[in-house]
Amino acid sequence: MYFRIIINLVLVLVLIAFQSSFLNLLPIVSYLNLLLVISLFVLVMNDLDWAIVWFLLIAFCLDVFSFNAFGIHLMTLGLVLIISYVLLINFFTNRSLYSFLFLVGIATIIYDASLLFVDYLYISSTLFVLPNDFWLDELWRLLANLIATGIIFYILNLFSKRFQPVFLRKKIFR
């Protein structure tokens, strides 16, 4: 149990370093939020307990390196986890690629919208105005996350039987 916690902690730290200092510097892939995508895979592949551990660890570490008020990532990622979990057990139960893409898409929009809102509260004191090209950037973020989700889904599908195939096969011949 403790060994598993340490392994998960190390994975989270590596992932944060990879996202914050590697992906964010490169063109195009900087739109990808790998932390969010991987956390959602943990939620779907494992149980809720491990997803809570992942979300809290990631949010805590991001808050340590964030100059906004402490707790912003804990709140936004906590909100994403709760909404994603409710959607997962009520609507996206079949664990197919489509349900996964929907889940990641919705989580991305919720996460970005809540961070934008918090960012605005913290930084701006003027009337709320969306930054230039926000919707275009959001589209790119969404696209990057969905593509990454598809790739990770196929890779994991090779090793795990937890996911449904992309197309459900219909028996034509009896």
Partner: peptide
């Protein structure tokens, strides 16, 4: 420089390094 454009900095188009 240990990091740039912290994940929450992109939203208001702030270009920064840590």
């Amino acid at each position: 420089v240990i990091s740039r454009n912290t994940i929450d900095s992109n939203y208001l188009q702030n270009s920064n390094v840590i």
